[in-house]
Amino acid sequence: MRLWNVISGVAWRTLKNALTNPQIVIPTMAFPLFFFTAFAGGLSQIRHVPGFGFPLGYTAFQFVFVLLQSAAFSGVFTGFGLARDFEGGFAKRLLLAAPHRSGIVIGYALAALIRWMVVAVFLTVLALAVGMQVGGGAVDLVGLYVLALLVNFCGFFWAGGIAMRFRTIQAAPLMQMPVFLILFFAPVYVPLELLEGWIEAVATVNPVTYLLETGRGFLAGDPPHALGAFLLAIGLGVAFWTWAFLGLRKAEAAGA
């Protein structure tokens, strides 16, 4: 019960900030919608490239990428908030008030999740409104969103781990750049089979490729490696969870 107090308190405060200060949150909400528009709209002809085999068209193809990207970045941006809290000293208040400090980290993760869910709703509505086709059934779609949720956790725990180690918002590029790179070193614009050269080599070993292909498969109703992708996402989640909690220990040892 005390742990839930801490979790809900921290999550409430983060969301309250977002709700009462739209200038903070609107850009991070708008970016995924914008990327989706720019990619799905500007590059739609790519579906005519010989070998582009995705059955649902380019809008659906891009939708899955942007959904996973927004999940990861909702996590990363929440990590920014944590870093700012350490820099500005507010984290000290949380550390002092919370009997169970793990609740602070989980509370932020919960805020990241809720933030992403709002984005996901907008994104889905937009995609359906511009005529995105859906091939998968209910189970497939649950699979897609749960997969994205795991990506959201990974994104937050990665960024939160950095935030608690560096305890300054100047670490923002360090939180953001690797996520940006790993996402874009995947088959973002075209399927893996159409990539050539170094990007093909990188994308083949990039775990995000695996998640992205499975996500697209869910939307089409034919996920290629569903079990593997979930095991991978859960494995990454556990690894980043550990990374974040070791970060909390570091922050505690350094005196916040």
Binding site: M1, R2, N5, V6, S8, G9, V10, W12, R13, R93, L94, A97, A98, P99
Partner: peptide
């Protein structure tokens, strides 16, 4: 409110 929640 936040502080009271955190402190239980």
């Amino acid at each position: 409110r936040l502080q009271a929640t955190l402190q239980g």
